[in-house]
Simulated assay, not measured.
Amino acid sequence: MGTSAASDEDPYLLTAKGIEEPPMGWKSSLRYLGPGLIISASIVGSGELIATTALGAEARFALLWLVIMSTTVKVAV
């Protein structure tokens, strides 16, 4: 097996034709946002589940803004 055959079969090898231009503007960036939101929403640990339910039981809806803000920041981070 030569080096050219190995580079054609290796999906993890970065080549010039595999590089895309970054999206410009909000409209073209939105289509890349969906998968990131799904992945970040699926990575919720048991500690977060326990802490948020305990916080909800104690503070009721007074700190709901904190949950929404932290979820939004989590996607950006």
Results as ranks from 00 to 15, higher is better:
residue 6 A to E: 14
residue 7 S to F: 09
residue 8 D to N: 00
residue 8 D to F: 08
residue 9 E to C: 08
residue 9 E to F: 06
residue 9 E to N: 09
residue 9 E to A: 15
residue 9 E to S: 14
residue 10 D to W: 04
residue 11 P to L: 05
residue 11 P to Y: 02
residue 12 Y to C: 10
residue 12 Y to Q: 06
residue 13 L to F: 10
residue 14 L to D: 05
residue 14 L to F: 03
residue 15 T to H: 02
residue 16 A to L: 06
residue 18 G to S: 10
residue 18 G to Y: 00
residue 18 G to A: 04
residue 18 G to W: 06
residue 18 G to L: 02
residue 20 E to T: 11
residue 20 E to V: 10
residue 21 E to M: 07
residue 21 E to N: 14
residue 21 E to Y: 11
residue 22 P to K: 04
residue 22 P to V: 03
residue 23 P to M: 06
residue 23 P to D: 02
residue 24 M to K: 14
residue 24 M to A: 13
residue 24 M to L: 13
residue 24 M to Q: 08
residue 25 G to T: 01
residue 26 W to S: 06
residue 27 K to Y: 14
residue 27 K to Q: 04
residue 28 S to Y: 07
residue 28 S to D: 15
residue 29 S to L: 07
residue 31 R to D: 02
residue 31 R to W: 06
residue 31 R to G: 03
residue 33 L to E: 09
residue 34 G to I: 07
residue 34 G to D: 02
residue 34 G to Q: 03
residue 34 G to M: 03
residue 35 P to E: 01
residue 35 P to D: 03
residue 35 P to R: 00
residue 36 G to I: 06
residue 37 L to H: 01
residue 37 L to A: 04
residue 38 I to H: 02
residue 38 I to W: 07
residue 38 I to Q: 03
residue 39 I to F: 12
residue 39 I to H: 08
residue 39 I to T: 10
residue 39 I to N: 07
residue 40 S to T: 15
residue 41 A to F: 08
residue 42 S to E: 04
residue 43 I to Y: 06
residue 44 V to N: 08
residue 44 V to P: 00
residue 44 V to Y: 09
residue 45 G to S: 13
residue 45 G to I: 08
residue 46 S to P: 08
residue 46 S to R: 03
residue 46 S to Y: 01
residue 47 G to S: 09
residue 47 G to H: 03
residue 48 E to R: 02
residue 51 A to C: 03
residue 52 T to M: 11
residue 52 T to W: 15
residue 52 T to Y: 15
residue 52 T to V: 14
residue 53 T to K: 14
residue 53 T to M: 14
residue 54 A to L: 15
residue 54 A to N: 02
residue 54 A to M: 15
residue 54 A to W: 06
residue 55 L to T: 15
residue 55 L to W: 11
residue 55 L to V: 13
residue 56 G to I: 06
residue 56 G to L: 04
residue 57 A to L: 11
residue 57 A to Q: 12
residue 58 E to D: 05
residue 58 E to M: 10
residue 59 A to W: 12
residue 61 F to R: 13
residue 62 A to S: 10
residue 62 A to C: 00
residue 62 A to Y: 08
residue 63 L to R: 10
residue 63 L to C: 00
residue 64 L to I: 14
residue 65 W to T: 10
residue 66 L to S: 15
residue 66 L to D: 13
residue 67 V to I: 12
residue 68 I to A: 13
residue 68 I to S: 07
residue 68 I to W: 14
residue 68 I to N: 12
